[in-house]
Amino acid sequence: MMKGHDVKHYPGLGPLAVFFFIYLYAPLAVIIAYSFNANRVAGVWTGFSTHWYASALNNRALMNALETSLTVAAVATVVSTLIALSAALAIIRGKNVRYRKLCETIVNLPLLLPEIVLAVATLILFSLVNVQNGMLRLVIAHSAFCTPFAFLPIRARLQGMSLDLEEASADLYADRWTTFRRVTLPLIFPGVFSGAMLAFLISMDDFITSNMLSTGGSTTLPVYIFSLIRAGTSPELNAIATLLILASLILATVALLVAARGTRENAEP
């Protein structure tokens, strides 16, 4: 078929798509390019240098913020994934669940409310019951808003899975725990993994809630970066940003590959 006669073809779409992808990636490329600039003024290019990477890696405050973020994200990921997994099992596999829809809505509630509202509400609660520990505040709040992100992929995976294998396992006298561990969990693992990855990234990325709840000793990475940006752009900030961009791109690729493998296995049983 000649392209000019293809009725599904709209002229100008190709160039628009090219422009679109340049638009998506150019801003990130600008940060990466500036991070190698020797000059202190980010916009003035004076030569190639990796100096700012060395100074970023020697930055104590940055490393402390990274440690806080990783700790909070790790705990929040484990808590939210476990809660999401048990809720998904109960909602999809449970019998006689009353108000199934309501239970799902409760798990997904954080998605329906603006984050800033939840953040200040949690701040008021913590100041009323006098929870001063920054890490504890962050872990509780992050676990709550990460749960729906862990829940949705697990739920989708569980819903797409037939009961046959679990029934077979039970018929072969496997107890509930063995069935769950040897049959259910391996089958839904891609969903659990995607859910946990999402929860981890959402927690690492969070600014609004962390900014409200963190205390002096518990500054997370985005809150620290925000304070750096407020102090003025610097090449060291660009170096930090570049490292973080690369880390998240690698993490995202791994997560998407695992999820893709999961769906392919699912398609050819």
Partner: peptide, 15 residues
């Protein structure tokens, strides 16, 4: 790009 931290995507437009 969605996986890149939000604050960095905003910061990119600042520079």
């Amino acid at each position: 790009p969605f996986w890149v931290s939000m604050i960095l995507r905003v910061y990119a437009w600042m520079i």
